[in-house]
Simulated scan of single mutants.
Amino acid sequence: MSTPSATPATPAARQSLTMVCATMAGAIPMMTLVLWFVLAVDGIGEFPESWPLLVVLAAAVGAYSICELVGFRTPPLQYSNRPTAEVQADSWRRFTASTFTRFAVCEAVFLISVTLAFVADSFWVVLLGAVIALPLFFWEAWPGERNQRRFAAALESGGIPSYLTGRAQD
């Protein structure tokens, strides 16, 4: 005899979004490896001047700021007579769109580093972009509990439960 789980079952939407995010995150290390063959002629190459690295760091600070200040904002849910499943599906659609937007902002750090790597002719810039962009993505865009709760709080700011986390926020 099995005992019921104390936590609600993970919805299919979360599993799908997690799989898509894992695939998108995997593109960064894959592109880094490919660019190693293009840019690193002798091993990893010489360390570049400081300006490309500073631009990548500035882009990362900007991406983090955008994600923190704007990335989790959304209009609150409006009262309606919709069933709970429909409200939850709408909440997941809005969370998914927000996740993709935050991913694009985080990935822009890596893409800027790729461009600057060709300008500076140094693989180090790509490496720095990947090392910064991946943790930034996992912190800001991964559809984990932290980001779900933050987005659910924004959805529920009008007093209507979103059921994004499987139940109304406390």
Rank of each mutant, 00 (worst) to 15 (best):
S2C: 03
S2D: 10
A12Q: 11
A12N: 08
A12H: 06
A12D: 07
R14V: 11
Q15Y: 06
Q15M: 13
S16P: 10
T18K: 07
V20K: 05
C21G: 01
A22Q: 06
A25P: 04
A27I: 14
I28F: 05
I28A: 02
P29L: 05
P29E: 10
T32P: 02
L33N: 13
W36Y: 15
F37Y: 09
V38Y: 12
V38N: 10
A40P: 11
V41L: 15
D42Q: 11
I44E: 13
E46I: 12
P48C: 02
E49M: 09
S50N: 08
S50T: 11
L53Q: 07
V55Y: 09
L57I: 10
L57F: 05
L57Q: 01
L57R: 01
A59N: 01
A60Y: 05
V61N: 03
G62H: 12
A63R: 03
A63K: 00
Y64H: 11
Y64T: 07
S65T: 14
C67E: 01
C67R: 00
L69M: 08
V70H: 06
V70T: 10
G71R: 02
G71W: 00
Q78P: 05
Q78L: 15
Y79G: 07
Y79E: 15
S80K: 02
N81H: 11
R82Q: 14
V87H: 03
Q88C: 04
Q88G: 04
A89H: 05
D90M: 14
W92A: 02
R93M: 11
R94S: 08
F95S: 03
T96P: 10
S98G: 14
T99K: 07
T99Y: 07
F100Q: 06
T101G: 11
T101L: 13
R102Q: 10
F103I: 14
A104P: 13
C106R: 04
F110G: 08
F110W: 01
L111T: 04
L111C: 14
V114D: 02
L116K: 04
A117T: 12
F118R: 14
V119H: 06
D121I: 11
D121F: 13
S122K: 01
W124M: 04
V125T: 04
V126M: 13
V126I: 14
L127R: 01
A130H: 02
A130S: 15
A133S: 10
P135F: 01
L136P: 00
A141W: 01
A141K: 04
W142V: 03
W142A: 05
P143G: 06
G144W: 07
N147L: 05
R149V: 14
R149E: 09
R150T: 04
R150I: 02
A153E: 13
A153F: 08
A154N: 04
S157E: 12
G158N: 06
G158F: 06
I160A: 08
I160Y: 05
P161E: 02
P161R: 09
S162P: 05
L164E: 03
L164D: 00
T165A: 13
G166I: 14
